[in-house]
Each structure stands twice: as structure tokens, then as C-alpha cells.
């Protein structure tokens, strides 16, 4: 099932970056140049300077203590370190039976893939037996409502919408009321893409979150941040600012079926410890996968498990 993600990452071997596996197949000596190579590969995977440095420093220390005798040992140590960072945030989305409706508030910057993620998520959850409706909370972007409506039709879920320009919080409030009236299990709410440094738009998001609490303070809410897997270090700022605004409870990472590796997740995991729920590795509905730390690291490093 990880074929697609790995395929994507393996492809990069022909391009600018090679998988780390090549490095170890190359039969190089264990010396400082190995660390340089590892540093390079991590940086190219968007792992970022801080985390990369932390990893290479500790590998260097282990090498000095002669704990790493051969190349497979270096690789194992590297993998173990990365898994150790990501394992704590490998927390799948859990949906309590009550109180209902369970709310998934989907947030993120423009073009991250929120609406597409909602479509895939809705299909997935419906298949799991949940009865849900979609709330067209992106009342700003042209045709965003139509886009969600198409997804609603595809997956057979009702879509609660108002006109473009309507108050997003009001739309979502309506959707909650409607879900309760129809006795549905959950509401997946779309929101307009917003850059995390726009204060007024983040205030609007806070209002949306408050409105949900106002509808029923006991409602379980998953504030799901959608990150574009191709985003570099700015993803940290996105996660931090959205988290500060409304408390992000889960992350979904999209567009990992290309050559982007999403290494910035390591930094986000270390700094913010927000659970990572899903990764998107393709266009099909089944390509929205639960996040598994070990598989993700293997794909990032380009090694067979």
C-alpha cells in the first residue's frame, strides 16, 4: 500500500536527488563524508537545518564512540532517530460515538488541497459507516462552493451551503443544526484558504471555531490542518500560527506522490507535537492514507523496509 509513496520517492533517484539507499549501496567508507551525504539528503528532503543538524550531530557522536561499525548500522541509527521523532505523532483520528455530530474543521493556506482532502476523507469515512454532511465554509473563493458540491454528489453526502460572500461561521452553524436535525454522525466543514500571517483572516477562523463551541460546547472537534507536502520550512510557521489561533488537533499532508518528501514534518513533530492523521499520495480516494511513521521515514530515505 505504500507503493505509490515509495514510487514517488524512488523516482527522484533519476533526478537531482538520489535515495539514501544508493549511498549505502555505494560501499563508501564510514567517515565524515558519509555524514555530509546524509546532511545533504536530509536537507534536500526539506527536513530543515535544525533537525538535520541534530540528527547528524548525534550520528557523529555515535561514530566517534565506535558504536556504528558498518554502513547498515549507520542507516539503522539514522532511521531509528527519525522514527523516534515521528512515532509520537502517529495518532490516527479517533471518532467518539457521542456527542454527535463529530466536527472536522478543515483549515489551511490557499491551494494546500483542503477541498480535495475533504472529498477523499468523506468517502473514506462514509465507507467506514459514518453518516455525514459537508459544510461549504469557503464562501470567499470563486466556485469553491460548486467544487465542494461536486464532491458531495460524488460521495453521496448532502452539502450545506449559502451564497459566495456569506458568513462562513453562519454556514457552519447551519450545517451543525442540519446534521443534528438529521441525526448524522459528523460534519466536515470546508473553510477558505488563508495565509497564516493575515490577522483578520485568522480572526475569522477563531470566530468560526467559537461558533462551533457556541452551537454545542461539548462537541468533539477535529481542527484538521492541511499542509501541501511540497511546502518548505514555512510549513512550520503555518502549523504554529494555525495552532496558536484555534488549536490544531491533526494534520493532513497532501501531494506526496511527486518528488516532494515532506521532511518538514519532522520539525513540526518536534516543535509542536501535533498528531499527523493522513498523508495524500495520489488522486484516488484510497490515496489518502493514515500516517505511519516508519513507512514515512522509509519512503523519505528511499529504502525498502
Amino acid at each position: 500500500m505504500w507503493q505509490r509513496l515509495r514510487q514517488g520517492l524512488w523516482r527522484t533517484r533519476d533526478g537531482l536527488t538520489g535515495g539514501l539507499a544508493d549511498l549505502f549501496l555505494g560501499g563508501k567508507q564510514i567517515d565524515a563524508s558519509i555524514l555530509d551525504e546524509i546532511e545533504t539528503r536530509l536537507l534536500l528532503a526539506d527536513v530543515g537545518v535544525d533537525v538535520t543538524r541534530a540528527i547528524t550531530d548525534s550520528l557523529a557522536a555515535a561514530l566517534k564512540r565506535n558504536e556504528l561499525g558498518d554502513l547498515p548500522a549507520v542507516l539503522r541509527a539514522l532511521r531509528a532517530q527519525m522514527v523516534a521523532v515521528l512515532a509520537p505523532v502517529q495518532l490516527p483520528l479517533e471518532i467518539p460515538a457521542a456527542p454527535r455530530p463529530f466536527v472536522i474543521l478543515v483549515i489551511g493556506v490557499n491551494g494546500a488541497g483542503k477541498t480535495t482532502t475533504i472529498g477523499k476523507l468523506a468517502e473514506r469515512l462514509q465507507r467506514d459507516g459514518h453518516r455525514l454532511l459537508l459544510a461549504a465554509g469557503d464562501t470567499f473563493r470563486a466556485a469553491a462552493i460548486e467544487q465542494l458540491a461536486v464532491w458531495g454528489e460524488r460521495v453521496g453526502a448532502p452539502v450545506i451551503a449559502q451564497k459566495t460572500g456569506a458568513d462562513s461561521a453562519a454556514v457552519i452553524f447551519d450545517a451543525l443544526a442540519s446534521a443534528r436535525a438529521r441525526d448524522l454522525d459528523m460534519v466536515i466543514a470546508d473553510t477558505a484558504g488563508r495565509l497564516h500571517n493575515k490577522r483578520n483572516l485568522m480572526e475569522e477562523l477563531k470566530k468560526i471555531r467559537r461558533t462551533i463551541a457556541k452551537f454545542d460546547a461539548r462537541l468533539p472537534v477535529e481542527s484538521l490542518l492541511v499542509l501541501d507536502g511540497g511546502t518548505g520550512q514555512n510549513a512550520i510557521a503555518q502549523a504554529r500560527d494555525f495552532h496558536e489561533a484555534i488549536g490544531v488537533t491533526g494534520i493532513a499532508v497532501t501531494k506526496l506522490d511527486g518528488t516532494a518528501k515532506g521532511g518538514v514534518l519532522l520539525a513540526i513533530a518536534r516543535q509542536l507535537a501535533i498528531p499527523i492523521r493522513y498523508i495524500g499520495v495520489g488522486e484516488a480516494v484510497d490515496d489518502l492514507k493514515p500516517f505511519v511513521a516508519e513507512d514515512f521515514v522509509d519512503a523519505l530515505l528511499g529504502v525498502e523496509p
Binding site: 533526478g15 491551494g111 511540497g230 511546502t231 518548505g232 514555512n234 511527486g258 518528488t259 516532494a260 518528501k261
Partner: peptide
């Protein structure tokens, strides 16, 4: 906001069609 992968995407597009310019968004 793209990260390191920007070079891969750019190289691939550039070799597929003759680009004449770039528009940087967001």
C-alpha cells in the same frame, strides 16, 4: 512557499515546454 522540491518541479516543467517566464504566487 515551496521547499526543495521547487527545483524538481521547475526542471520538469522547463524540459517539457519552453517556459518564457515565472509568476511567483502567495
Amino acid at each position: 512557499m515551496l521547499g526543495q522540491d521547487a527545483v524538481n518541479a521547475a526542471a520538469s516543467f522547463s524540459s517539457s515546454v519552453p517556459l518564457s517566464g515565472i509568476i511567483l504566487t502567495k
